[in-house]
Design a protein around this nucleic acid. Structure first.
Lengths: 172, 172
DNA sequence: TCGATTTGATTTGTACACGATTTATATTGG
DNA sequence: CCAATATAAATCGTGTACAAATCAAATCGA
């Protein structure tokens, strides 16, 4: 019964379970994001960005790196935030290519009363764990991150998924 | 610079790090999905759906539950798969509201030569860990899942791996 | 100084992913 | 038998998220 996938090597079994857990986590985060949306009008990424800006005004590029998102994505998020008057764009005097994003008074007010990024349930349960369990979970997650992100983070050359399907010549 | 987060309560510090790790993982999964796209023309969700269909033709609703996605999302994925001729839609004779999705010969061929869902790198690194590390990671992830999903909501049928911990009952 | 390159941001196009609504078909109640 | 209800899928609207193309400003080179 376990051999439905011809390509399933022994190692695949547990990897698949990891994958399933990952997908369920992603789904959970997404669903919470939507719940947030209906409760306070902000999605998780929007709130993350806003929180970052609550600490300091930043140019878009720096902001993107801070929140681990692409520049294009952040531009869209800032668009929506700006439409609600929660942030403002200021062209830098130093470098007129650069757009500084700053939180507004309204934005600050919303950040202050916004619920936590993760559901209360998660916070509560996580907090109730023993410290060693908390660090174990954190380090496991970080281990997964390190296995997923390229080590010498050159960003592009990791497309090594290709078995023989595609030619690796990306620079040509 | 360490006091920028003065507004976070003690419990928030580690939770935030968990969150960051989670987001980086999600980003990693997404990036891999795109790499997959360029290498074999299929994204991860498409491949997941196709794999499921390689085992049996299914109505859209059942398919959606099997892969833990919404019905609307699966409709879109099936649209794109169908446009490439990898699946076909068949209206059920029994119940003409129902649309059975079946994999085609081309679809089966692609599934066969598609790379694993996760990069080789992840597979290799995960496999190279000590067994106790593997189970620690898996159980940490599953712990996170259980903290995130509301007990009410359980049920998500997952991608067929069902071993322990979650959802004992496979389907009928 | 003027072109070429680089760099920051936006735009465009594709693909998820969801809830809500709509459409088509079944089933049931009167 | 037909209206009311229920269900399956498709469609619509919103919001991520990315790469690629584009635009605009700065900087470098000749």
């Amino acid at each position: 019964m376990a051999d439905r996938l011809d390509s399933t090597r022994a190692v695949g079994v547990m990897t698949d379970e990891v994958l399933v857990a990952l997908r369920r986590i992603m789904r959970g985060v997404d669903l919470h994001s939507r719940a947030l949306m209906t409760s306070c009008g902000l999605t998780a990424p929007q709130l993350i960005v806003l929180r970052e800006l609550a600490e300091a005004k930043l140019p878009v590029g720096v902001l993107a790196r801070r929140v681990s998102l692409g520049q294009a994505t952040v531009t869209g998020i800032v668009d929506r935030l700006q439409a609600r008057g929660l942030v403002e764009r200021i062209r830098s005097d130093e470098d007129r290519r650069s757009v500084i994003v700053a939180i507004t008074r309204d934005g600050r007010r919303i950040v202050r009363k916004a619920p936590s990024l993760m559901q209360d349930r998660f916070q509560r349960e996580f907090a109730s764990l023993q410290p060693w369990e908390q660090s174990q979970i954190l380090s496991s997650l970080q281990r997964v991150v390190s296995m997923m992100e390229t080590p010498d983070d050159e960003e592009a050359p990791m497309l090594g998924v290709t078995m023989d399907v595609v030619a690796p010549g990306r620079d040509a």
